[in-house]
Simulated scan of single mutants.
Amino acid sequence: MIQRFFTSTGELNPWGQRVTKIVARVYALAIVLMCFLPQSVYPNLKDFTTPGIIQIGRVFFLPTPFNTLVHANHIETIGDFFLILAQNVTNVFLLYPLVLCLVFLFPSWRNWKRVLRNTFYMSLGIEFTQLILDLLIDAGRVVEVDDLWTNSLGGLLAYWTYLMAMKFVQKKIE
Rank of each mutant, 00 (worst) to 15 (best):
R4W: 13
F5Q: 07
F6I: 08
T9C: 05
T9W: 02
G10H: 03
G10V: 02
E11F: 10
L12H: 10
W15N: 04
T20S: 00
T20Y: 02
V26Q: 03
Y27S: 07
A28K: 02
I31K: 06
V32K: 04
L33C: 10
P38F: 12
Q39R: 14
Q39H: 13
V41F: 14
P43L: 01
L45Y: 03
T50A: 08
R58G: 13
V59M: 07
L62Q: 14
P65M: 00
P65R: 07
L69V: 10
H71E: 10
A72V: 14
N73L: 07
I75M: 08
I75W: 09
E76W: 02
T77V: 07
T77E: 10
G79T: 14
F81G: 04
F82R: 12
Q87V: 00
N91K: 09
V92R: 02
F93R: 01
L95W: 06
P97K: 06
L98V: 08
V99M: 11
L102E: 12
V103H: 07
F104Y: 14
F104K: 01
K113H: 07
V115K: 04
T119D: 00
Y121F: 15
E127M: 05
I132T: 04
L136Y: 01
L136Q: 09
I137H: 01
D138M: 05
G140D: 00
T150M: 14
N151L: 05
G155I: 08
Y159D: 05
F168C: 00
F168T: 11
Q170G: 02
